[in-house]
């Protein structure tokens, strides 16, 4: 009986703690948005963050995009040639990349490459009391540290996803046209006939923007809210990666059900 009581207590505490934290995260988000104007005025800060979260993620994004495209080329050809429609390989590669794989996989990579780094940086700043020191000097850490990192991520994410998709289509082309020998003209013309800019490309960009906001928000919040100890920072980084992945996949389902209903 006592054990059950303890379990129930723990469950209740976890639930209340979670809701509490969610509320704080929402308030934190609003505060970051409020101080964003100041950090937009100080462009070099923002450019620095675009460099750290965008440019430094470039290599992993491009290489992964290429490999995903190569795999899509092989798998797509294997499936399509059963139906005698291997000419549609371009369509399959382009649509799966633009609609799903581009935004989702790029966001997952971005969360583990850049999101974790942002959490670690802000967490360590908090642990070493740099944030408090800034506050003492009447420098708002939200405007000086958090908002530029948030917006750096939000700006980088759609660009990275677009590069991922472009690289993936190049990979699919390499396998399909160069290696296997699907007709080059059919590959591109079928792709262009089936992919619409507004429906497929733009919806993919919207998706990656939403993922960018979610990942950046989680990353800066976990860093800001971490326990100021070595263990606390490491836990915060783990949480960033786990929560980001969950948020990306759940949001992807929600967005897809709004965007692609087959009409």
């Amino acid at each position: 009986m006592k054990a059950l009581d303890a379990i129930l207590r723990k469950l209740g505490a976890m639930t209340i703690g979670g809701v509490w934290r969610l509320g704080f995260a929402a308030r934190f988000f609003m505060a970051v948005l409020r101080y964003s104007g100041q950090s937009f005025l100080r462009l070099p800060l923002m450019i620095r963050e675009v460099y750290f979260s965008g440019v430094l993620s470039l290599l992993i994004i491009l290489v992964s995009g290429l490999f995903v495209g190569l795999v899509l080329g092989l798998q797509g050809y294997d499936i399509l040639q059963r139906f005698g429609s291997s000419d549609a390989l371009g369509v399959m590669v382009a649509l799966s990349l633009l609609r799903e794989l581009g935004p989702v996989v790029a966001a997952l990579l971005f969360a583990s490459r850049a999101g974790s780094a942002v959490t670690a940086e802000i967490g360590l700043m908090k642990t070493t009391e740099q944030l408090q020191a800034m506050d003492m000097m009447a420098v708002n850490p939200l405007a000086r540290v958090v908002a530029p990192r948030f917006w750096g991520g939000v700006i980088s994410m759609p660009l990275l996803a677009a590069m991922f998709s472009a690289m993936g289509i190049f990979g699919g082309w390499l396998i399909g046209v160069v290696a296997i020998g699907v007709d080059d003209g059919a590959f591109w013309s079928q792709m262009r006939a089936a992919v619409s800019f507004r429906y497929d490309v733009l919806n993919g960009v919207i998706k990656s923007f939403v993922f960018g906001v979610a990942v950046s928000w989680i990353a800066v919040f976990e860093g800001y809210d971490c326990q100021p100890t070595a263990e606390g920072v490491s836990r915060a980084i783990t949480r960033t990666v786990v929560y980001s992945a969950l948020a990306i996949l759940a949001l992807d389902f929600v967005l897809t059900s709004f965007m692609f209903r087959g009409l």
Binding site: L159, S165, I169, D200, V205
Partner: peptide
């Protein structure tokens, strides 16, 4: 590079 990819997706891949 990011915008170049977007243009590529718009012009070459999408109609």
């Amino acid at each position: 590079l990011g915008f170049a990819s977007l243009v590529f997706l718009a012009v070459k891949v999408g109609s």
